Computed example of a mutant assay.
Amino acid sequence: MPPEAAPTRKLTAPQHPLLMHKLSLMRDIRTGVKEFRELAAEVSLLLAYEAMRDLETAPETLSTPLATAEFPMLSGKKLALVAILRAGLIMTESMVRLIPAAKVGHIGLYRDPVSLEPVAYYSKLPQDISERRVFLTDPMLATGGSAVAAIDTLKAAGAQSIKLMTILSVPEGIKRVHDAHPDVEIVTAAIDDGLNDHGYIVPGLGDAGDRIYGTK
């Protein structure tokens, strides 16, 4: 038998003018905590529009004030939104307004300042995660270590359909995720140049968590 084909590595980076404008405002050092938080939520909604473009629908008969006809309604697997703590929270909290029936999970990771590798400290996922399409959120895909560790955790819990949603990514992080999990699609607002010596995205927007929560 011929060997199975390797999974296609998927990457979506929509170049929508509104998305680019809001992201540019997030990058600006003059943007304060309140506005940054609002922009992060708005960018997350625009990314969700792209990430959920392939959700399945099925016709359902409904009556409008004028007629009865078939209209598309969501079908297929139910959804789960999983945030990598803490910065991913802003993304799931905005997205759940679009899909209030989605279940929400959390994976706690922090990056060791010396090794830059992720350290896990918390995981709480829906019990039926294996039956749901999972949208994993983290504003920054830098080294890729935290994303890979979170995807490892999801798959160990039974998740089979996973998309990673990020606001900013770099080639190093994208490659690391795709090398470890080529079946996972990455949906990102922008792909920046790379990382500095401290593992931060350049030109980037600073530390997303600190700017969202005003902790620095």
Rank of each mutant, 00 (worst) to 15 (best):
D28M: 01
G214D: 08
L109R: 12
P2Y: 00
K77F: 02
A190S: 14
A6V: 00
F135K: 11
I212H: 06
L168P: 15
V187G: 05
L18K: 15
D210I: 02
E50D: 11
Y121A: 04
F135W: 07
E185C: 06
V148E: 06
S94F: 02
P59D: 01
V82W: 01
E56N: 11
K34E: 15
G209D: 11
A48T: 11
L89F: 02
A51M: 08
G88E: 07
T137N: 01
G204R: 01
A41N: 09
L98M: 13
K124L: 11
L141M: 11
T153I: 07
L18S: 14
D152H: 07
P126H: 00
Y213V: 01
A48R: 12
D179N: 13
D28T: 06
M1R: 15
V96K: 12
D138T: 11
P14M: 10
V177E: 07
P14N: 12
M26N: 08
D207C: 03
G108H: 05
G214M: 08
E70Y: 03
R176D: 07
L85S: 03
T215D: 06
P3R: 14
T64L: 12
F36W: 03
A149H: 05
A156D: 14
D207Q: 05
D210M: 08
V148A: 05
I29C: 05
